[in-house]
Nucleic acid binder design. Structure first.
Length: 295
DNA sequence: ATTGTACTTTGACTTCCTGG
DNA sequence: CCAGGAAGTCAAAGTACAAT
């Protein structure tokens, strides 16, 4: 299985969505690894390793993980396979009711440098209470449930911002897996994130990091959940999406800029990840956007 | 824990072709 | 001219298994 080959990556039709899932046995997300919406992940039971951006976090029961939009992430099995989690996904539009100043405050709950908040038991109770209310609304779908969900979301974000404020020290170091292998891969991922526009191969990487290419290949997969090429393509396509949105660069220029030597191959890879060709992607983005009057 | 072998699968890139 | 699909080739990556 190749992970993401055929799934659709359409723009999210929801504002706020709550999902609960309980997994038995080993499991890794069969879903998109980055997306336009924000994600709040709360682990009710079990343990998971969570790859976010360029680090691996050992997530325990009662941890809350906040994924900013378009950040690459993936959960990976840890030694304990069973787990239970709650997921809150929401889009920028879900925060339309508040002013931009308030929005900025709410989004302080998301911190790229420490995406994980380890909650004290009494904090867990508060958060779980709120999340359960959200889940009930989501499931019952009584009239106005969407309004409730948005209201609860605001409450949740305020709560998280306050909790973050109280926790003065960044807990990233303690939550980050102390496994030296993880640190090694983390370094390598950071290297890839910074050098994706150049030619990168398993062999060149293995030379810069003094590790055999065979071992690197297997280690990378085990730790991040991604194959090397799979990850590299993901990063390149993600960057290409930015360029297609934000610039008028020609497709061929975009391809070269993000590290693809051939446009044809770029197009194919882009489509396999986003389900749209680069030009279609640019078109849908431009038509989705309000015909800007502000300049 | 780390590397290598041997094998299969996938990727990278070409070339040629279609259509706007 | 530009975007992109199809098919083919060779190289690289991925992996089950073995060895150190």
């Amino acid at each position: 299985m190749t992970g993401y080959s055929t799934h659709k990556v359409k723009s999210a039709p929801f504002l706020v969505k709550v999902t609960h899932s309980k997994r038995r046995g080993h499991f890794t997300m069969p879903v998109q690894h980055y997306h336009e919406h924000y994600e709040i992940y709360y682990l009710l039971n079990g343990e998971r390793n969570y790859f976010i951006q360029d680090r691996i976090y050992a997530i325990k029961k009662g941890d809350i993980v906040l994924i900013y939009k378009n950040v690459v992430h993936r959960t990976i099995d840890s030694s304990i396979p069973d787990h239970e989690r709650l997921l809150v996904d929401f889009t920028d539009e879900a925060l339309n009711a508040v002013s931009s100043k308030e929005r900025a405050l709410l989004l302080q709950a998301f911190d790229m440098n420490s995406p994980v908040i380890r909650l004290e038991p009494y904090e867990q109770i508060m958060v779980e209470h709120l999340l359960n209310k959200m889940l009930q609304e989501e499931q019952a779908k009584a009239p106005g449930y969407n309004i409730c969900l948005r209201a609860y979301l605001l409450e949740l974000l305020v709560l998280l911002v306050r909790l973050r404020g109280q926790k003065r020290k960044s807990l990233a170091e303690t939550i980050e897996a102390s496994d030296p292998l993880h640190q090694k891969i983390s370094e390598i991922v950071q290297y890839i994130n910074g050098h994706y526009s150049q030619e990168l191969s398993l062999t060149t990487l293995s030379k810069t990091f003094y590790i055999s290419p065979y071992y690197l290949s297997r280690l990378f997969k085990r730790v991040t959940g991604f194959n090397f090429v799979e990850y590299l393509n993901l990063i390149r396509v993600k960057e290409a999406q930015k360029l297609l949105q934000g610039t008028d660069m020609k497709i061929i220029e975009v391809a070269q800029r993000v590290g693809f030597g051939s446009v044809a191959h770029f197009g194919r890879t882009f489509k396999s990840i986003t389900s749209l060709s680069p030009s279609d992607y640019r078109k849908t983005f431009k038509s989705t956007r309000e015909p800007a009057t502000e300049g």
